[in-house]
């Protein structure tokens, strides 16, 4: 008993010593500095959201103050903390409904995008066929044409020809296709790294390609799928212009469209916008958190070929 406690104490001491060693290492210093740089602009967003005000406060140094006080003036802290902006965002418009719409669209985009890209990536990785290289390049080309200039043709196709205006299906299809190239490329790299032997023996035992794909490849590629899925989700989650052009019914708006109600030509409610942005990014942060263990292995572990 005593020994156990002693060992525990010892373990704690070791952990503490390790933590201290970490904290005084150059790596730690570097990380602290980069985190500060990375989150500093975000702190302005947070401070604005909690300030209850609508415009970014100007920084003006107190003229005859010490350097310390002057530096303090540069720290983004609201004069008073209040949830007023959040309350207004959530109550004065159907914000939760819009978030719900966005969830539907983004989740469906993820599913459609992943189904299309997994199958395509599997073919690109496992089959040797004429036009394989060209096919992969075609996916890349789709990222090269400026998106702003695709608006009108996309409107013509989706709304006029397919009759999918004011429906989520239209948005989902467009978003899924937009995310496709990235997903295909990354998944193909991951599939490439999965050992072929398992499939070979399954083929010998008479399993069909489809069974192999569903039963063996997809479970093995779970980390990569999680990450590309996250990417597809983000594509749909943050898109504004197509959503505002396709939807003709306010109750069908997605949340980025709703957010832009706070910004106009003349005057903008930046406080509401900041609060809304933070609310919008919460689901994404939660997703990051839950996928984090995949995030570091999923994107690219597979891409390293032996």
């Amino acid at each position: 008993m005593n020994a156990v406690i002693g060992r525990l104490g010892q373990g704690k001491a070791v952990a503490l010593r390790r933590a201290l060693r970490d904290i005084f290492s150059w790596r730690f210093a570097l990380l602290i500095v980069s985190v500060l740089i990375v989150i500093y602009p975000l702190l302005w967003v947070v401070s604005l959201a909690f300030s209850g005000q609508q415009s970014l406060t100007l920084v003006q140094l107190p003229p005859d103050a010490g350097v310390g006080q002057q530096l303090l003036a540069l720290v983004p802290l609201p004069e008073q903390w209040t949830l007023a902006n959040f309350r207004a965002v959530l109550t004065e418009q159907p914000f939760l409904r819009w978030i719900g719409n966005s969830l539907v669209v983004a989740v469906a985009t993820t599913i459609v995008g992943l189904s299309l890209s997994c199958t395509a990536a599997y073919a690109f990785s496992r089959f040797r066929f004429a036009g394989r290289q060209r096919g992969l390049t075609l996916f890349l080309i789709s990222q090269m044409f400026p998106a702003v200039l695709m608006l009108i043709p996309l409107y013509v196709i989706v709304v006029q020809w397919l009759g999918l205006g004011n429906s989520w299906l239209g948005l989902i299809l467009v978003y899924a296709i937009t995310a496709l190239p990235f997903c295909v490329w990354m998944l193909k790299g991951y599939f490439d790294s999965l050992p072929y032997e398992i499939e070979e023996s399954a083929l010998l035992e008479g399993a069909s390609r489809w069974t192999i794909f569903i039963r063996i490849i997809l479970p093995l590629a779970r980390p990569a799928i999680a990450v590309t899925g996250l990417f597809a989700f983000m594509t749909a989650w943050n898109e504004f212009i197509l959503a505002s052009i396709f939807m003709d019914d306010e109750s069908r708006y997605t949340v980025p469209v709703g957010l832009r109600f706070f910004v106009s030509d003349y005057a903008s409610e930046w406080g509401y916008f900041a609060a809304g942005s933070i609310l919008v990014s919460l689901p994404v942060i939660l997703l990051f958190l839950s996928l984090q263990r995949f995030l570091v292995s999923g994107l690219s572990a597979g891409a390293v070929k032996g």
Binding site: L116, S117, A120, A123, F127, F129, M150, P153, L154, I157
Partner: peptide
């Protein structure tokens, strides 16, 4: 080609179809 690689083409078909309609048509329009 089609006979030899039918499975492969079938796997890619849905994605390519989507790209054709929503990416390459707008591109052609441009």
């Amino acid at each position: 080609n089609w006979h030899a690689n039918r499975t492969a083409y079938l796997y890619i078909l849905p994605a390519m179809l989507g790209m054709l309609v929503l990416v390459f048509f707008p591109l052609l329009y441009g």
